[in-house]
Design a protein around this nucleic acid. Structure first.
Lengths: 194, 194
DNA sequence: ATAGTTTATTGAACTAGGTTAAGATCGGGG
DNA sequence: CCCCGATCTTAACCTAGTTCAATAAACTAT
């Protein structure tokens, strides 16, 4: 497990000196995640921010009727985790688990703080990352209010073509905010059209 | 129109020197916005990031059926605007207009860039702002997928108690992702219960 | 291979929320 | 002070999406 992927992800947005790179990588903890294994769980404070080095994770919320709602999928090159719990160290409302055998880099809370303190360029990096996520989330809200399920499903496939191979349909349905049964109908409708 | 509000909003998250404060305020453009007046429009690149000094604005998206969908309300102390259009300078898909006579500070794109370049503390400030917004947006998505309309309406009122006085119900309905007629039913249902 | 478990499909009955249209209420300008 | 346009409410009907239940297909672990 090398740092090549994470460093190139970062260097798409900011340029680091050798010292900064060394300091950053010294803070990272490698970890393997098995398919189905939970890496952060609901109820516990999120200890680490997570970078997916290989494989695929998903983060979901379990509501009071015990129904899971997928918040996001994260494949190679993405950061994930419960930001709220991570920053405030309150119990998380999300669970993050592997959808496939995966490798992740963990950045513990204290390390993140040191990093931002000592290397302000990382403030910039995370500012850009959060800004882009925010744009994506706003877009998702618009979609869920103004597009039909058919459109949302097609856009999902277009946007995350690699995900369908990993992700059971029931999770895609959940991400789209519908039941698996209804996604099944939508898929059939779309098949018949073409 | 003084800089007191915006400076105190910033100093809740980072501490600025006198020089930095002076430089920052030199970049701000004051502007009045009348009720109903559009300050940024769909189709044009967003020139400025907007801070609400007094009053209330709303940002909405108009879909292909010509229906408006409210993305966010912004009252005193909030930043608003189309981040995607602002950073990439592509035509905006949102319109921002005054819900009441308001005062805003405008931070033009070029000024924002200078600011981040010269005062890295602002990278930190905006990193925190975007991080908090992201948390809020994710929460909103969860809500829209797992809570009933009744619950969402009650939480909206709890979270933004000051807004109901400014905001016509049809916009609240839009923000909640329902029709004004249905919000009307919901309100009645809730009145009768209590 | 075989049984057990999880996932996907289908169909019928149901419900949350939308649509349409008609009144009721509010609010600002002459 | 009154009128006109915008907003809000109500009610009857309609539909996208859910629920439930039964079957089929795909994985997993013996």
């Amino acid at each position: 497990m090398t740092t090549a992927t994470i460093l190139s992800a970062i260097q798409r947005h900011v340029t680091l000196t050798d010292d900064e790179t060394a300091f950053f990588t010294s803070l990272l903890l490698p970890q393997r995640v098995r398919q189905g294994e939970m890496i952060e769980r609901e109820g516990e404070p999120t200890r680490c921010f997570i970078f997916v080095n290989a494989g695929c994770l998903m983060t979901y919320f379990t509501d009071k009727e015990d129904v899971d709602h997928v918040i996001q999928f994260a494949t190679t090159g993405w950061w994930t985790g419960d930001l709220h719990s991570f920053t405030k160290q309150v119990p998380s409302i999300y669970t993050t688990k592997g959808l496939a055998d995966s490798e992740v880099w963990l950045l513990p809370k204290a390390s993140m703080e040191q990093l931002l303190e000592r290397v302000p360029r990382f403030e910039r990096y995370f500012r850009i990352i959060f800004q882009n996520s925010l744009i994506t989330q706003q877009h998702r809200i618009i979609q869920s209010y103004s597009a039909t399920v058919d459109e949302r499903y097609l856009q999902f496939r277009e946007k995350y073509p690699s995900l369908e191979q990993y992700v059971p349909q029931k999770y895609i349905a959940s991400y789209l905010g519908i039941t698996p049964e209804f996604l099944s109908k939508v898929r059939r409708r779309l098949m018949e059209k073409s």
